[in-house]
Design a protein around this nucleic acid. Structure first.
Lengths: 199, 199, 199, 199
DNA sequence: GATGAATGAGTATTCATTCAT
DNA sequence: TATGAATGAATACTCATTCAT
């Protein structure tokens, strides 16, 4: 009834838990949540199937941790960059940098991005995690901009829209590869468009 | 070996096939492809499980048809609108209309949108269908604009970016409901931003 | 409850029933009873699945008729030959002829022979049919021999053994093809052995 | 993709695999392969349905092992006897012994014999197993006879024919029970006939 | 009679989860 | 802790049989 989920205090246990999460991350990313079975996760993590349930209450629980890792991977470089922005803001540079950054993280996480987001559709807890992620991003930027003296109307909305555009392009860039699109041109278009929001 | 999939020529058969697809559409939309079983689809469609395999080769085959329906639902109102655009183009109006249109279709199809897109990650045939959809949208608009005398640089790229932004907003609007966002303001921001691409 | 199995009096109906039996015969022969479905039988017979149940009570009922056909195919040329044996009996000739005859019928019926016999294992009615077949063969020969003046001890037993040996060789010949066996030599061995029973 | 079939090294696992095979053996023997379902096999073996697939790749895989058991059961006493034959050969004794032996093994394996043989019709791997079995029997005897100084023409052919006759009688004896046949008389006839091949 | 669409019980197989060791 | 064998509920799909037309 009150199953005890191991709180791994010892390093070895922490390592093992991490390994499982990472194995799950990789396999989910490749074939999706529903095409992955716990045996495969355990095998890839180099542990037994049984112990997986020592660290996680069920398969979905692993997923929740995978999402946390994903969110960390996606937001970490982002936070770092934002924290370093200084006045005066050269929006062209900033937007370009953010775009490149997003493209970079997307390159290695595009699949899982889609997979996780679709799971959010039917799982409110997952959905919540993504909302928080977006909130954090929006706030960290808009706060920073305010700090640096920018006093725009509808600032949060603009930041949100800007980030959506950037995400959207990064996604497109990694994935779709419509052959009639010149992606370098498209990149310029996006940057210019986003910059226009703030100038 | 050569399983016979009924090609429903008679109206009753067509109806039945359609009913199954629609039942699947609804259930996939609610709980996702993997959490839906064929029995549920059949039950909701008001048919037996057996006959489902008279009309579809397997569960994924139903999915393929669901995608087609989705694509039709999404593109039909769109095509209709685009065909009616006339010179001189008032970009503010056009973008606003497209945004409203997209929001409308998203309202009833947002869930399945995410679900289907995530399946595209691991299924090239599905992915292909979405690429074609996007191609069609981009081309139909950029062709129309050319017809109406617009001679912009990077036209296809701009159209693509514009549509991404619109989609992105519509999706956000239907789903996320960050409470610190004023969505009406955000809508204006998006419209203005998209319009700026063409003026 | 009291399903009416059509007693086909009209020729067309008889034809149709025969066609179904023959179709079943062929498919059973190729892939066995359990790997054959009624749809395939109907298709091969050029009739609808529904009408199959107009002529037969169920799938096993078709099988019963198939067995009858098989038995007829196997015994007909045999009966014909036996009826023509005249005194004085040249056992060498008779055995050779019977062997050739059996090989001939086996050539086109070896598969179904095995398939039907295995069904006899779990179906007494089928088993009964084969017993009767063997009885008939044994009696027809032993009666003939008696008629022609042969007064051997254990005649029925000898005839039975003789026929078993002949069947066995025919089966072997058609099927097994052990490459280290010279089947022409083996044939002589069998003939000589069987003849020895009666001389 | 690469399903793991347990290679049971520990005794308990070996036992369990054996139990499943034996359960399958018994049920196949009673009602045939196609009338047996995995649930029944598991139940009879006292295991869960799931674990059956831990030991076997699929239902047919169980069958393959059943055949191996059958072949072992059939050939083991045979090999043992043949190895003990010494010169000078009393053919009457040897044939009688072989006949009794074959009757003995047939008594408990007659059903499965037929069932397995009919599956060989549509499955080459199974067919191959039986060919090898027959080869082994023929060779072991003919080699033995040669070793003991017998120099007959067409030795392999004779041995093959002899064994066929013995098999055939044993089968008949166990199964058919034509009431007009005196099986003891028939047995003498067979023995004499077979002996005649070698003297 | 004849059709073939429809039924729904039946079955092989998978897989999250448990548990004896 | 850790293992991986074992469980058994769940599910896609088939097919003998029925029945509306």
């Amino acid at each position: 009834m009150d199953k005890k989920i191991r709180q791994p205090k010892q390093d070895r246990a922490k390592d093992k838990k991490k390994k499982i999460i990472e194995a799950a991350y990789d396999i989910f990313s490749e074939v999706g949540f529903y095409n992955t079975n716990t045996t495969d996760i355990a095998k890839k993590a180099g542990v037994s199937t049984g112990i997986v349930y020592g660290y996680f209450s069920d398969k979905r629980d692993i997923l929740l941790y995978v999402i946390d890792i994903y969110i960390e991977k996606v937001s970490e470089p982002f936070k770092k960059y934002v924290s370093k922005i200084t006045a005066p803001i050269d929006f062209n540079n900033v937007v370009t940098d953010l775009l490149n950054l997003t493209m970079e993280t997307h390159k290695s996480n595009a699949n899982i991005h889609n997979i996780l987001h679709s799971l959010a559709v039917t799982d409110t807890e997952i959905n919540q995690k993504f909302l928080v992620l977006e909130d954090n991003i929006t706030f960290s930027i808009s706060d920073k901009l305010k700090d640096l003296g920018l006093c725009a109307d509808s600032l949060k909305e603009k930041v949100h829209v800007a980030m959506n555009s950037i995400q959207s392009f990064a996604h497109e860039y990694v994935y779709d590869k419509h052959d009639y699109i010149d992606y370098e041109k498209m990149k310029s278009v996006v940057i210019q468009m986003v910059v226009s929001l703030f100038e």
